[in-house]
Nucleic acid binder design. Structure first.
Lengths: 198, 198
DNA sequence: TAGATGTTGTACTGAGAGTACAAACTCATT
DNA sequence: AATGAGTTTGTACTCTCAGTACAACATCTA
């Protein structure tokens, strides 16, 4: 994957960089000094500037990298055999599991959501990892009858996206004691059964 | 309402400060210079530092102020007569309406969610405006039979909170053409009916 | 009318982001 | 093994801007 200087970031550097995610998640990017990132990752400052134009880019790179990985795993779940409903469950499970087990990255993401919303590259990575697969299985489920055909599928996909990502992120932020399975089950119960009585 | 210097921010200053929310929402706090905030709001830099310890505090103040206002409106909806289900609908409607009609503040909030998650004051303001009322009407609805009694009410309230706030915020960020009513209706349809067929 | 408190302009300080650059190192090609 | 292109890193530098200091002036209270 490439930074924004045009230079391809070597895998070894990328791997080391993840060592700095904790610091960033803890203090926020604005309060994290480049020297701290250098120290925490073991990549010297001069090298950081060789690959990246600034610290915003370093974090954006890490988030894109992590989200791309998630997008892959989620796509697999979304394209597996089975009903749309089953695959929705699988997709949500993978998303929540990833969010919780990469807690530092998730917390860094939430601190950076503003930029994520503005940088097309990041927005797209979020979309590919979260929104698109949900929209996909939602359509499939409506087609195969395993899910209700809602009036406005795009809007519904957006809401479901919101449900999943916020539930996951909040648990990542507060440091939940609940397991990913428990949380996933609760989210799916809500999404599938709804709140109407009976 | 008080800034963090201990000095009470006069209403007139507070009002002027909202003039700077757009700039902050557009560029993010990190890329917004104090002088820009001073220029956009018409409050001189020296005065800003008389009331606030820094720019983070300025934004935090604005967000708390706006969220406190929303919390009031939402509390009214949550405490109105009617079934839990009706009040859930009312609460969600107010939340989404407010998020969309204060788009700049909402976008600034999303850019600041990281800090919001860490500063207790801000986290509490978000909670009071979004989470608490939802948890409340959810309990009421379960009691009066207008809503299903879910297995894990806290978890459900959290997810609903996620659904509402993210749906609202995303629409605020991308600049939707849909009306608040349409969006509210779609969210409520999803939350109440769920995705199961039939 | 005096003192306290608020308001603002101007000038300053210090931190730290980002740059410049050269020395050293790696690795492919001849 | 020599040349040269690209990489890695240390050191020293510049420059922007957040935040501070402070004095002059305004306003409000007693």
């Amino acid at each position: 994957m490439a930074g924004q200087t045009g230079r391809t970031v070597p895998a070894q550097v990328a791997a080391k960089l993840y060592g700095a995610v904790d610091v960033i998640a803890e203090n926020g990017l604005a309060n994290t000094k480049i020297e701290q990132i250098a120290a925490a990752s073991g990549v010297p400052k001069a090298t950081l500037y060789y690959y990246f134009a600034g610290k915003e880019e370093i974090l954006a790179f890490l988030l894109r990298d992590s989200l791309a990985y998630l997008a892959g795993a989620v796509a697999t779940a979304a394209e597996a055999p089975g009903s749309g409903r089953d695959r929705l469950a699988a997709v949500v499970a993978v998303q929540i599991e990833h969010t919780l087990s990469n807690s530092a990255t998730s917390r860094a993401l939430i601190g950076d959501l503003g930029r994520a919303a503005q940088l097309p590259e990041l927005a797209q990575a979020v979309q590919a990892a979260f929104y698109d697969p949900i929209a996909q299985v939602l359509r499939d489920g409506a087609d195969d009858g395993s899910l209700r055909a809602v009036a406005d599928p795009d809007e519904a996909a957006l809401s479901i996206f919101g449900t999943v990502i916020m539930t996951g992120l909040i648990h990542a932020v507060v440091g939940t004691e609940r397991s990913a399975e428990t949380i996933t089950a609760s989210v799916l119960d809500l999404l599938l059964q709804g709140l109407r009585p009976g």
